[in-house]
Each structure stands twice: as structure tokens, then as C-alpha cells.
């Protein structure tokens, strides 16, 4: 079955996979909002949302419905095209990153093998970095087009923050890549499946990556682009209705994706200890592995929330100081040590 040289079955498989990945990341992001409020409640000795449905589980639906039916305001002096482009870009880039993450091993249906990864490209990590780098355009364009000085300030803050921390993030990753020798996420997971998790070899690198991930996701304590009490809300100040929802939603999708990425890079992805010793056959093992990845991701998401409700926000100069004067030198040192160790092992 081919059409214009494309295997239709292959196309169908990929379309299904893409829809599944999109649906999962959207649903997880939806329930992140619920989880965030629950965790915040518990940490503050409250209960959190519990009115909509059992345990408040319908709360995200109610919130989404509310956002959809709210009046949509585009300020008179705003740049209409860019104003709409901002949240769309934020959402688009947030959804695109999920494409290269390996969500599981292969499933076997008869003779066909279905890899649970939309695209196993050999520059997986570079792709993620590129897309995440594009994500800042959503914030920049949104903040600029609002024609509001607070939004603009927040957008500038966001841009410089993401650029600064992307450097440290990339440098901390280089050490990992020197170790693994590949940019493909699938291969990185397979290596960890056979040996130890990468966090064992790269504890400092993981720590730096974690801090930078917080900054890239604009999460507390680095949530300066949306510092409510300084900027009246941040880059989405002029936004209302679902366009605001998209901005907030993109943040949660980013959080989900970066949690999954950290689990993949440093915590073995879909592999779990004694995976190949328990003697289960292919498909069940794959499903268990997916569960393992999901569990790790949820743990990271919880950690994101836990930190948010513990630490106060950084001051802007402290943020820059931490990024440039602490994280980047540390990442360089980490790189040097890793390189030296690799050379020492080879000789």
C-alpha cells in the first residue's frame, strides 16, 4: 500500500502515534494544573480544589471551559497579527518537543514492529534544543505585541533568561554527550538499559541541567517573566480568554516535556532496573517501560511543584549572576572532569 511513494501503513502508524503523544501531553498538562493546585494546597495545609467531581478531578475541564467562554480582548494599540501569533507559537513549540522523545520500546503486532517514538532522529537532543530555543519567540512576540511596558519588560526578561540558561544547559549536556557518544535519545536510553543510569556518572551535570530546566520553563524560583507582583502578570498581561490559557498551558506542557527529557537523559528513560532479568515478553515489557517513564516524569513534575511552593523568586541580578557566574563555570568544570576521565580510561 503506497501512495506517492509513501507507505500508507507507515503514515497511519505515525499519525496515530503523533495524535497519541499530543493527546497524552495535553491531558498531562491539563492535570498538571490540577496537581499544582492540589500540591500547593497540601503544602499550605489546605485541601485544594475538591468541588468539581470526585477529588476535584473535573476542575481542569471547568477551568478550560471558563477560559473558552471568556470575552476575548485584543487591545486597540496591539499588533493584531503578532498578538495572535504569540500564544500560538508558545503552544506550537511546546507540543513539538514531544516528537523525538522515546516514550517506550517497540510494540510488536504480528510482523510489524511499532516504535513508540515518533521520530528517532540522530540529532534528537539538538532538535529539542532548537525547538526550546524557538519557544522564547512566543514570549517575546506576545510581550512585544501587547504594546504594554510591563509585558515588554517581562518579554525582555524572559528572552535574556532563556538565552543565559540555555548556555549552561547546553554545556552541562555536552559532558553527557561526551559520555554517551550519541545525540539520539533512543540510543541514550538503550545504553542506560544495559548499564547504570547516567545520573550515576553525571551527578553534577544532572544538577545543573535540573536548575536550567527550571529556568527554561519559567518556573519558580526563576519565574521572572511572569512575576505577578512586579510586572502585573508578566508577558501575558494583556491576554485574555483562551489565548491566556494557551500561554499558561504551554508552560505546563513544557514542564511535562522537560520532566520526560530529564527522565530520559539521566534516569534511564523507559528502562527500569532488572528490566531484562524479570523475563517478560516484548509487549508487556514495553508497556511496563512506558509506565516506568511515566512514573519518573510524574516524580519530576511533582518536584517542580514542590520547589515552586517552597522557594521565593530570585531577584533579576541574582538570576543573571547565578546563570553566568556559577552555572556556566560549573558546567565547564564538569565538562573538563568528564573529558579527563574519559581520556584516562582510554589510555
Amino acid at each position: 500500500m503506497t501512495f506517492l511513494g509513501i507507505d500508507l501503513l507507515f503514515a497511519l502508524e505515525k499519525i496515530l502515534l503523533i495524535s497519541a503523544v499530543l493527546a497524552v501531553s495535553l491531558v498531562v498538562a491539563m492535570y498538571c494544573t490540577w496537581g499544582e493546585r492540589k500540591v500547593a494546597g497540601w503544602i499550605q495545609d489546605r485541601i485544594g480544589p475538591d468541588r468539581a467531581g470526585p477529588l476535584g478531578l473535573l476542575q481542569p475541564l471547568a477551568d478550560g471551559g471558563k477560559l473558552f467562554f471568556k470575552e476575548e480582548i485584543i487591545p486597540t494599540n496591539a499588533n493584531r497579527g503578532l498578538f495572535i501569533l504569540g500564544p500560538s507559537l508558545a503552544m506550537l513549540t511546546a507540543c513539538m518537543t514531544g516528537a523525538v522523545l522515546p516514550w517506550g520500546d517497540t510494540l510488536t503486532f504480528g510482523n510489524t514492529q511499532v516504535s513508540l517514538q515518533v521520530a528517532d532522529i540522530n540529532v534528537g537532543i539538538l532538535y529539542i534544543f532548537g525547538v526550546v530555543g524557538l519557544g522564547v519567540y512566543g514570549i517575546m512576540i506576545g510581550g512585544w505585541a501587547s504594546n504594554n511596558k510591563f509585558s515588554l519588560l517581562a518579554a525582555v526578561r524572559g528572552a535574556s533568561q532563556i538565552i543565559s540558561y540555555e548556555l549552561a544547559m547546553g554545556l552541562s549536556l555536552i559532558a553527557l554527550l561526551m559520555l554517551t557518544g550519541t545525540l539520539s535519545l533512543k540510543e541514550i536510553v538503550e545504553q542506560q538499559r544495559a548499564g547504570y543510569w547516567n545520573v550515576v556518572y553525571q551527578p553534577l551535570g544532572f544538577f545543573l541541567f535540573l536548575i536550567c530546566a527550571f529556568a527554561e520553563c519559567n518556573r519558580a524560583p526563576f519565574d521572572l517573566p511572569e512575576a505577578e507582583n512586579e510586572l502585573n502578570g508578566g508577558y501575558h498581561l494583556e491576554y485574555s480568554s483562551m489565548k491566556l490559557g494557551f500561554f499558561l498551558f504551554a508552560e505546563y506542557i513544557n514542564m511535562f516535556i522537560s520532566s520526560a527529557l530529564m527522565a530520559t537523559l539521566y534516569f534511564g528513560g523507559y528502562s527500569f532496573p532488572y528490566m531484562d532479568q524479570i523475563g517478560l515478553d516484548g509487549n508487556w515489557l514495553t508497556i511496563l517501560g512506558m509506565g516506568a517513564l511515566f512514573f519518573k516524569t510524574i516524580c519530576f513534575i511533582f518536584f517542580f511543584m514542590w520547589v515552586r511552593w517552597t522557594l521565593p523568586r530570585f531577584r533579576y541580578d541574582q538570576l543573571m549572576k547565578l546563570g553566568w557566574k556559577v552555572l556556566i563555570p560549573l558546567a565547564l568544570v564538569n565538562m573538563l572532569i568528564t573529558g579527563a576521565l574519559i581520556l584516562w580510561q582510554q589510555s
Binding site: V39, W42, I43, D45, W306, W309, T310
Partner: peptide, 16 residues
């Protein structure tokens, strides 16, 4: 230390 404090509060009796 701060994370420890907030973690303990997760399991406290709720005031609500």
C-alpha cells in the same frame, strides 16, 4: 531544609 519543611506539611492535618 526548606524542601523538607514543605514536604512535612504535605501530610499535616488540613486546616480547611
Amino acid at each position: 531544609k526548606g524542601l523538607g519543611i514543605t514536604f512535612k506539611h504535605l501530610f499535616r492535618k488540613k486546616a480547611t
